[in-house]
Simulated assay, not measured.
Amino acid sequence: MSVMSGFGVVLKRDLHLAFRNRGDLINPLVFFMLVATLFPLGVGPDPETLMIMGGGVIWVSALLSNLLAMDSLFRSDFEDGSLEQLMLAPQPLWMTAMAKVISHWLVTGLPLTLLSPVLAIMFGLPSEALPAIVATLFLGTPLLSLIGAIGAGLTVGLRKGGILLSLLTLPLYIPVLILGTGAIDAAVSGMAWHGHLLWQGVLLVLGITFAPLAISASLRISVSG
Rank of each mutant, 00 (worst) to 15 (best):
R220D: 11
A187S: 11
E84S: 05
H16C: 04
A135L: 14
V156T: 12
S61N: 10
F32T: 06
R20D: 08
A183M: 07
G162M: 06
L144S: 07
G207W: 09
H196Y: 15
A187V: 07
I58K: 02
I147V: 14
A120K: 05
T108Y: 09
L154G: 08
V35A: 12
H16T: 14
G140T: 04
L143H: 02
V60I: 15
M87F: 06
V202W: 03
P142M: 02
A99M: 05
G109L: 10
T209G: 11
S224W: 13
D77T: 07
S116R: 05
A62G: 15
L144C: 08
L50I: 03
V188L: 06
P117H: 04
V202S: 04
D14R: 12
W94M: 09
I178P: 00
T141P: 00
M122Y: 14
G54T: 06
L144P: 02
L41E: 07
F39N: 00
P47F: 02
I102L: 15
G162Q: 11
E48R: 12
T209Q: 11
M1W: 12
S65E: 03
A62H: 07
E128Y: 02
L146D: 01
L88F: 11
G6S: 15
A214D: 01
A62K: 01
I178Q: 09
G190N: 10
D77R: 04
S218N: 06
V188Q: 08
T155Q: 01
L137M: 13
L67K: 04
R220I: 04
F39A: 10
T108I: 15
L170I: 10
V118L: 14
Q85R: 13
G56T: 11
A214F: 13
V156F: 04
A97H: 04
I121P: 00
M122Q: 09
L167D: 00
S218A: 15
F210M: 03
L67G: 01
V118M: 13
S189N: 13
M122E: 03
D77G: 03
I163F: 12
V107K: 13
G44Y: 05
I174D: 00
A62R: 01
I102D: 07
I221N: 02
D71G: 12
L64Y: 11
P175T: 03
F31K: 05
A211N: 07
A187P: 03
I208R: 05
V30E: 01
A97E: 09
G124F: 10
A149M: 10
L197Y: 05
V118D: 01
G180N: 12
P47A: 10
Q85D: 01
P92S: 06
Y173R: 01
Q200F: 02
I133F: 05
R75F: 03
P47I: 02
P90Y: 09
G161N: 07
P171I: 03
A120S: 12
I26T: 04
L11G: 12
A183Q: 08
S224R: 14
V57M: 10
Y173S: 09
L34V: 14
P117T: 03
D24M: 14
G207T: 06
K12W: 08
M4S: 13
M70F: 01
F123P: 07
I215V: 15
W59Q: 11
I215D: 06
V60E: 07
M122S: 10
D77A: 09
L170Q: 01
V205M: 08
L63A: 15
